[in-house]
Nucleic acid binder design. Structure first.
Lengths: 235, 235
DNA sequence: TAGTGGTCTAGACCACAGA
DNA sequence: CTGTGGTCTAGACCACTAT
């Protein structure tokens, strides 16, 4: 193992070295690698440190670990990607643009069937419906179509989201325990097109997210990004 | 803290309890929480165990941790989502469908400017260009447009991808060190539409991925999913 | 049954940044 | 300077599962 710099932890150095051995095919897909005790000796580390490193690689998908069977290099690694889903305002300001938003609607409304299903509520439950456009330097960045469940977010009825954006208020006040998140592509309908200042039929990246706390579904939201938007993932 | 079942680790129980305190707003956004030593006593655990739990919550975005300043509940948590990008064949077979694929082209071809840029190669570098359609029960699931760099994946010239699918061969033989992954939406062009048996202009979810090892870019691929496809993320 | 990973612990030292 | 998290260690016991 090459020397590690002072800014790299020993566990991280082991991660890097094991990854290198796999990438350089010193350890081939399917091979069994030495057990933790053996590697601990080879790397001059405690077993707990090796364990931590190998668990990271297993999470990453490069290793398969089983008690008694040992640790093997994954044959068909299904690698993972992580998406950070930032607060829209921070995302826009992060690119150096000036953030603004416009609330198009905020009103009580009974849940239609599809929304009720997503939120695991009965059809017709009274929710708060909001539509918002988020702008960067005055150009539409994202349109948001949101339903909020007052039963899981008490106090929401009293908030005026013209002043504070709903996402931020919810995130600050109602952290979630669980979320359903899905990405898809849809053609802009007339309303999407008008709000995003584009043509009807344009392909839009859609993010749908429903969040839950112990009182049930907090909110479900459909975010439509401006045409051409790319969502970048980190491996 | 409620009793933990035998199948939950002590660290995980601490994660759950801290998350509960945050969700139930016993600890509000911005609050400083007790330090590790204190929590270790409260939870009857070693500090290392508490440390592990709090690090998990920090990764999740719920806590902000700084030396000396202590651990605070994140004010605007930018929560993360994880996507597992499986082998297409496994993904299709996982839904109970029969997998098949058709290779439309496999030929040496010079890299055009955009591909060269993505792969950090010079324009005109000789690559292998492949187009493949992946089917589930005979219906198009995904079309793949791939460029492979023989310099980083030696031996690729000799493989006949009519027999084994390129993704699997690469994944099995050339694990990557780094990947660029992006999602977007595009309107189906004439070729996409023909291959996916849909109409031109239909919105398609696009995944672009470029992978690198220590020899440089291995491959870059554009995957276009069938219309209506939803990519599900796990929080 | 025995070998392997999973987890915990007590203690230690260190690195960083706030007071 | 000092309180806090970051990391490592040696040792221990446990839980799974391949043999």
């Amino acid at each position: 193992m090459t020397a590690r710099s002072a800014t790299t932890s020993k566990a991280q150095a082991i991660v890097n070295e094991v990854r290198r051995r796999i990438v350089d095919r010193e350890w081939r897909q399917g091979d069994r690698i030495p057990d933790e005790a053996e590697l601990a000796i080879q790397f001059g580390a405690a077993r707990a440190t090796v364990n931590k490193a190998l668990q990271l690689l297993a999470e990453e998908g490069l290793l398969d670990r089983k008690r008694r069977a040992g640790t093997h290099v994954t044959v068909n690694p299904a690698r993972k990607a992580t998406l950070t889903i930032p607060i829209v305002r921070e995302q826009i300001e992060g690119t150096g643009l000036e953030y603004s938003h416009r609330v198009l609607a905020q009103r009580p409304s009974p849940a239609p069937a599809d929304i009720a299903a997503r939120m695991a509520l009965s059809e017709g439950t009274m929710l708060i419906r909001m539509r918002t456009i988020h702008y960067g330097d005055g150009r539409p960045f994202q349109v948001e179509d949101r339903w909020i469940n007052p039963a899981a977010a008490p106090g929401v009825e009293k908030i005026d989201f013209h002043r504070i954006n709903a996402n931020e208020w919810l995130v600050r006040n109602f952290p979630w325990l669980h979320a359903d998140i899905a990405f898809s592509a849809e053609s802009a309908d007339a309303r999407d097109a008008r709000h995003l200042e584009t043509r009807q039929g344009t392909a839009l990246l859609i993010l749908q997210r429903t969040t839950f706390n112990d009182l049930g579904a907090i909110t479900t939201v459909r975010l439509a990004f401006h045409p051409g938007y790319q969502l970048i993932a980190t491996p």
